[in-house]
Write a protein that binds this DNA or RNA. Structure first.
Length: 465
RNA sequence: GGCCCGUUCGUCUAGUGGUUAGGACUCCAGGUUUUCAUCCUGGCAACAGGAGUUCGAUUCUCCUACGGGCUACCA
């Protein structure tokens, strides 16, 4: 049977790294096994759920390339379904009404020192329930957890987990306003959506026995569970907003490629069983397998992300990089031709860890540099530098044809004739042209920029420095 | 507090009774390069601790320590 899985974000914020990882592993598993990948919006918390977040989450998913198979499922549109399920449980005796107020319960908790619900309405006679109902006392609905038993399940990642029912109190499945809680909606939805594998974060392990109890109460098949280890911040705590930029969108804005981000995320808690690390999404799908997912939480390391990212950029075609850049800034390089842009990309991609870095470091290809580091300048701009640069200018002015090979030949012979070292000539020229002492081969830069631009910039430098 | 889960270099990880404990990132040193980056070579660096089981434990069992998660009329 082909698996059906779902990613179920609650729209209380943008898609964050942890959510993206959960979505990714669902996606990898189901694409590897030719199954379906669904997305369900868990928007039952009306207070915190926002429409704009739903849009943002979908946008991020699309950007990442995690395409889902059917229409989005909104929990807010399925209240009838939940109500029916709750009444069913009430009718079958698997659930009961609890008229204890929150204050009352808090008091009991405080006095007993126990956190769990003491079952005070579990076995009241029907007449008492009738009386409270008539009085209009607000009530919650709780699941009647079978006593003296235990519930266990086989987690695809954590193995067998068993919890005694003494540890599970009669938890609430419907609030006093009648609305269903997470554990109920989750089970009902997963059942009706025909989900075969529930793949989610490890923080849900303790919810799982409760949910299994509900499947049993309904008489439904229990899906297979796979809990993923957490992604942690540098402080070993679960990655959250406290750790800074954790939204997928911010990584997009910083110029990371979706495939690179996904590649890095896939390596957090999983390995392909080989020593390969830089992989395309397609390759990861082919190799993905739960047996290589492990249990320990993994700290998110931006340094390694940067490395993966630079590897992806270096491997990518110039065309793809250009379109990636244009997604960030649609105007980039529009003052020139696309082929010029791709020449720039070709020179710069090997030395960039993100698209934004590539864009920043290649500004001088499109506009004359205006900002020069004087401190840096003084290191190599000596008394005789102006004369040298003047001579180079003359040579370049007479150079014909203007191509990389001629540039290299002429400049090298100039240096040899005058017994100048490379640094003495190249550094000032490079700095005049680009405003920096770093970058690709100077001959390539000169060639790409063209005679007119080069001479103009040298002239500018000569008058200013 | 209770319950559940985890623990190999700083980080991501390989490893399932016998290995010089392997790789990657970071960092350091060298080489290549006009510079920077890339690339290449080399280096630093780990089995949380203690008891067992065993001829032999990183690998199996138990205990301790540490870390994380859950314990809501949040999801």
């Amino acid at each position: 049977m082909n698996p059906r899985v779902r990613f179920a974000p609650s729209p209380t914020g943008q898609l964050h790294i942890g959510g993206a990882r959960t979505a990714l592993f669902n996606y990898l598993f189901t694409r590897h096994n030719s199954g379906q990948f669904l997305v369900r919006i868990e928007d039952t918390d009306l207070e915190r759920s926002k429409k704009e977040y739903i849009d943002q989450i979908c946008e991020s998913m699309t950007w990442l390339g995690l395409d889902w198979d059917e229409d989005l499922v909104y929990q807010s549109k399925r209240t009838d379904m939940y109500q029916k399920a709750i009444s069913h449980l009430l009718d079958s005796g698997h659930a009961y009404r609890c008229f204890a107020s929150k204050q009352e319960l808090d008091k009991i908790r405080e006095e007993s020192g126990s956190y769990s619900y003491p079952g005070i309405w579990r076995d009241r006679p029907a007449s008492e329930t009738e009386t409270e109902l008539e009085k209009g006392t607000p009530f919650t609905i709780r699941l009647r957890v079978p006593e003296g038993e235990e519930t266990s399940f086989d987690d695809l990642i954590y193995g067998s987990i068993t919890v005694s029912h003494t540890e599970i109190d009669d938890f609430i499945i419907a609030r006093s306003d009648g609305s269903p809680v997470y554990n109920l909606t989750n089970v009902v939805d997963d059942h009706y959506m025909e989900i075969t594998h529930v793949i989610r974060g490890e923080d849900h392990i303790s919810n799982t026995p409760k949910q299994i109890l509900m499947y049993r109460a309904f008489g439904w098949d229990v899906p297979t569970f796979a809990h993923l280890p957490m992604i942690l911040g540098q402080d070993q705590k679960r990655l959250s907003k406290r750790h800074g930029a954790t939204g997928v969108q911010s990584y997009r804005d910083e110029g990371y490629q979706p495939e690179a981000l996904l590649n890095y995320l896939s390596l957090l808690g999983w390995n392909p069983g080989t020593e390969e690390e830089v992989m395309s999404l397609k390759e990861i799908i082919e190799k993905f397998d739960f047996s290589h997912v492990h249990k320990k939480g993994a700290i998110f390391d931006e340094k390694k992300l940067n490395w993966i990212s630079s590897q992806h950029i270096a491997k990518q075609s110039n065309e793809d990089i250009l379109s990636g850049i244009r997604q960030i800034n649609s105007d980039w390089g529009n003052s020139t031709s696309d082929s010029f842009c791709m020449n720039v990309i070709d020179l710069m991609k090997i030395r960039s860890k993100s698209l934004t870095e590539l864009m920043e470091h290649s500004r001088y290809f499109f506009e004359d540099p205006t900002c020069f580091d004087q401190k840096e300048l003084r290191k190599f701009w000596k008394d005789d530098t102006c004369d040298i640069v003047e001579n180079v200018k003359t040579i370049l002015n007479e150079l014909e044809p203007w191509d990389e090979q001629s540039l290299e030949e002429k400049l090298k012979s100039f240096m040899e004739e005058n017994e100048y070292g490379f640094g003495k000539v190249m550094k000032p020229i490079r700095f005049s042209i680009s405003g920096t002492v770093n970058g690709p081969s100077l001959f390539s830069i000169l060639n790409l920029l063209g005679k007119e631009t080069v001479l103009r910039r040298i002239e500018l430098a000569l008058t200013n420095f």
